[in-house]
Every structure is written in C-alpha cells, then in structure tokens.
C-alpha cells in the first residue's frame, strides 16, 4: 500500500488528508462552541438588539 501511496497515486490521498485537516478543525470549533460560557453566549447573541428603540421616532405614512 505504501509503495502505491509514495510512488504512484499519492494525489488520490489528498482528499483524505484534506478531510482529516478539516475534521480536526471542525472538532476544535465544536469544542469551542460547546465550552463557551453561557453568559458570554447570551451577551454576544443580544448584541444586535441593544439598540431596539430605533423605530420610535419614525413617522407613519398615511397609505
């Protein structure tokens, strides 16, 4: 098998190596996400909503 990998079709292994690469990254990301503190998650997820007063001064159209 190794002779084939080394001398002949090594390119064919690239997809598997790439998979290993991205899978490792994926595991790290999942761990990151899972172990994020709840307070932090709650805080960050509400960041876009901090200013939800922005429609109060908008004039109504009569249509």
């Amino acid at each position: 098998m190794f002779r084939r990998v080394i001398l002949e079709d090594w390119h064919m292994w690239v997809p598997y190596i790439c998979f290993a690469l991205t899978f490792a990254a994926f595991i790290l990301i999942v761990l990151w996400a899972v172990f994020l503190k709840k307070s932090r998650v709650d805080y960050e997820s509400r960041l876009p909503l901090e200013d939800d007063t922005d429609l109060k001064d908008i004039t109504t159209n009569q249509n």
Binding site: F26, I29, A33, L36, V41, D42, S45, R46, L49
Partner: peptide
Amino acid sequence: RPVYSYRLSIV
C-alpha cells in the same frame, strides 16, 4: 429576538 443558537452560528 436573538439568534436561535449563537453556538451553532460559531460552528
């Protein structure tokens, strides 16, 4: 309302 899962958005 906030995004359903912030953790999922990271992934």
